[in-house]
Design a protein around this nucleic acid. Structure first.
Lengths: 129, 129
DNA sequence: CGGAATCCTCTTCGATACTG
DNA sequence: CAGTATCGAAGAGGATTCCG
């Protein structure tokens, strides 16, 4: 159907982890991007979402299914096979994710710079504890 | 400077609380919207953000100041007066918030409908516990 | 292969009370 | 007025192990 997902698709070194925009829960936007190119199997999704445990991936997929963002198709085979696919509603999030990425491309460096400058300043006002 | 903020600005009855898009932490986007019309004082912000405790508002404002989204200006008066104002970086979030609101206007009803239909279905697959 | 069951930590948020 | 200081509850997320 589509090429295998690149395991480095979401490199943790990338500062996108500091991105102040979140769609759904922690992994939702990444799942949407993984499914952008077509349907994928459970294990296929685990590769680019490095570090995600099966429990959390299941939770994420269930919540997305509940909200009508994806569909789940189980094939009665052995070994079992399950495929997830974006719905039209799920695909509607792609534009929003693109907007968030565009904001990050344009402004995240400034945010991180401000943060660093603040953290390096001894006079800076500190968070409450 | 500007008109008083409407205490019903963020009506909790509005399903925007179910919006699957979040900017910063829970209150960040609302603070940005409160500051859209100009600088505001601490207590002024508490009215529309109903239910926020001073501690949490302080945390939110501190984090936003650290990230260069707002500036804080304290006047040496008695009683004290402090004003918060959006920076250019903070204003850059307005477009993103508008995009999120537009998505919600167009698609949130479908999401909530899917959720309800799913929850009403006895055969539906339930979240992990 | 695609999960489920269990346990646990960490952060976030809120309630309450007090202060310069 | 504009915060601080504590305390506590809750839930998200993760580690580990096991199953049809």
């Amino acid at each position: 159907m589509a090429d295998p997902l690149d395991p480095r698709m979401f490199d943790p070194v990338c500062p996108s982890s500091a991105m102040p925009i979140q769609i759904g829960d922690k992994w939702t936007a990444m799942v949407v991007l993984c499914l952008e190119g077509g349907r994928r199997r459970f294990t296929e999704l685990r590769a680019p979402l490095r570090g995600i445990t099966p429990k959390v991936l299941t939770q994420t997929l269930r919540a997305m299914e509940r909200d009508g963002l994806i569909t789940r198709t189980a094939y009665d085979e052995n070994p079992p096979r399950v495929e997830y696919e974006l719905t039209a509603l799920g695909r509607s999030l792609l534009a929003l994710i693109a907007a968030a990425r565009a904001w990050s491309k344009d402004h995240l460096p400034a945010l991180l710079e401000a943060r660093e400058a603040h953290d390096d300043s001894p006079r800076a006002r500190r968070p409450l504890r």
